[in-house]
Design a protein around this nucleic acid. Structure first.
Lengths: 366, 366
DNA sequence: CATACGACTGTAAGCGCATTCATTTTAGGT
DNA sequence: ACCTAAAATGAATGCGCTTACAGTCGTATG
């Protein structure tokens, strides 16, 4: 690991100037073939790799896009996380978005720099990322808005998920969100109108997520339209949106006096899957005794029995769109109006609401 | 997006020299509190973000680690990939490794740069990554060995998965692999000795993966030790390790004349899950009529019915170990001997081999 | 044979920040 | 009030590469 070779070394060894070495990499055709070969040979022998830093400094662009997302879990936790932990909803999200962004970025010749925010850690995260990329995406509520505000004046930033309203100063940021309201609304409408269900129960989350709130509002709206009486609050709020909490939710709900609900509408798939399990143990059949629905459309949702009716979020696509937006800003002529995309979701009707064959849970085919 | 402010701007605005501005960020305590505040204030007003490039150039270190992995899928494919595609085994691997690396990297104050190799694309991928990071990991067979050879002389590189033998020139690289042989061996032994199965069939892959080969060798060894007669070749090789192929494999196998096997040993979980589905459709019960096993331990494996007996690979941990190795090299005194880690795997006995309650498929609890 | 060009290649000036060394302050001591 | 060590700060240099801009040739033109 002695000190790495530089353009100077290569230049000297191949008997040309550093400018020529640089050209060989930046613009090969501008160098005579013979010279080029000589340079390349020298570079190979020396083990030369152009310094991304120097290149970035000189050309003021890095060829890298970034993504900041909330931290998966306690980084100091034991390496072997439990399986349950590994399926944390946020984790799943991030994976998908990362995939989408990486793919799209690559298509445009960019690499992807990712960094999760340590909860409570130094907020330097964004700055670190921001300083090394040409533009980046931020998962909502990952970064203090004020910090973003400052940075976004200097480079393209796109905000992912979370409605833009409320995020005061950030109105000039590009923004991509998912149609949470519409999705939950349509799903609820389906339950009410198509399945004739009237006694619905919504299980939400204690956490203050704009996305989750939007779902609940969609639910409320559909109920009202459908003439179903509901309160302004979820019938139950769980602490976290995990399977374990989903199971607990069922226990709590069933223990309540009064009529048992026809349908349990969960704020996400994790909860719903947990509920499925608990209901089974309680001897209740889904969907015959009670209907269950989720939200997100994680892979798991179609593998459980009965397969879960849910709303699929296009997270992968969100990642791709984010990159497209960034690229547009980067290559764009002038800074135009901030863009706000609302990605459509799809209601996936499966067995848990009474649609589809009850048996449908095997691997779906294309 | 006018030209971004630099140390000079901040220095001027706060009436200090650029050296002081730099100190405020690098070593805050070396600057008087009052001065520091003044600088910080100016920075805030200007929207100053230190340039990672310049910093990296000057300090010759980036604070970034990298990962190169095989490309997920055709980047030009339609955005909305089918669900089947999204579950590509390689994808799952990469996700886990990315997670592990990101987490570990963060713990050490590093960010993670990821880039998938475009199949057939310009091999500049590695160079690009290499030029922007302090060290990086490479998933086996992602990068031409020769290129790696050159780069690894200049910065820490750790090779992930794939045995080191055969990879000729790369013997000096750090290397982490998973005990594929041991895992498959133990699993096979379990089937033979504990379940008394004698007619096994191994379904492998046409693709030449050292890991997959190691599994098969483990299978062979266990069969021989157990006195089970087997040929030197897998009973069947599939084109890709997908669920669809797994289903097809079952059809092929069952169509063959001769006794039906007691157990189908698949080279990975994807195949096994597909097989489970096909068997169900054929009216065969698992594990009563035929035992099925997989390999990998993907989340999906415990959600199918019956839950799949498999060998769990610690991919997340692999990512973490990779980072630890890199960090060690980076901070290490001198270049020591190349390290080669073999991560242990765990045989997970579930319903599909006759262990565990047949019903065990709900979400497991911690 | 002189003039123009076009194709290459070399020169030189930064890019934005870290850092060493020198210089100026400030804090103690007496 | 005066001297010294420690703390702050400034000046200057270079990290490795890109990029005008300026030469250098070789050759098509007139």
């Amino acid at each position: 690991m002695s000190t790495a070779p530089t353009v100077y070394d290569v230049a000297e060894r191949s008997g040309v100037s550093i400018a020529t070495v640089s050209r060989v990499y930046r613009n090969p055709d501008s160098v005579r073939a013979e010279t080029r070969e000589r340079v390349l040979a020298a570079a190979r022998e020396l083990g030369y790799v152009p310094s991304g830093n120097a290149r970035g400094l000189a050309s003021r662009s890095t060829g890298v896009l970034g993504l900041c997302f909330p931290d998966y879990s306690d980084p100091d936790a034991e390496a072997e996380a439990t399986e349950a932990e590994e399926e944390d909803a946020a984790t799943l999200y991030a994976d998908q978005i990362i995939r989408g962004m990486e793919r799209a970025a690559r298509r445009h010749g960019y690499a992807l720099l990712i960094a999760a925010s340590l909860k409570g850690g130094p907020e330097s995260l964004v700055a670190k990322v921001a300083g090394r990329v040409d533009g980046f995406a931020v998962l909502a509520r990952t970064v203090p808005t004020q910090e973003l505000e400052v940075i976004s004046r200097r480079q393209p930033v796109v905000m992912l998920a979370g409605p833009r309203e409320g995020t005061d100063h950030l109105d000039h940021l590009d923004h991509i969100e998912v149609a949470n309201f519409d999705g939950q609304h349509e799903l609820t409408r389906h339950l009410i109108e198509d399945h004739g269900l009237r006694r619905l129960a919504y299980i939400g989350s204690a956490e203050e997520s704009p996305d989750v709130e939007a779902r609940f509002r969609g639910y409320l709206a559909a109920c009202r339209t459908g003439g179903v009486r509901v309160s302004d609050e979820p019938d139950l709020r769980v602490a976290m949106m995990t399977q374990a909490e989903g199971e607990r939710a069922v226990d709590v709900l069933l223990a309540r006096e009064g009529e048992r609900p026809d349908a349990l509408v969960f704020a996400n798939d994790q909860l719903a899957v947990g509920a499925l399990h608990a209901l089974q143990q309680q001897g209740l059949r889904v969907p015959d005794d009670v209907v269950v629905t989720g939200f997100d459309g994680i892979p798991l949702s179609r593998l459980v029995r009965p397969a879960l009716t849910t709303v699929r979020q296009p997270m992968l696509r969100m990642g791709e769109e984010a990159v497209e937006l960034l690229i547009k800003r980067l290559t764009g002529t002038r800074d135009t109006e901030p863009v706000s995309l609302m990605l459509p979701v799809t209601v996936v009707r499966r067995a848990s609401c009474g649609c589809g064959k009850a048996d449908d849970a095997g691997p779906e085919r294309r």
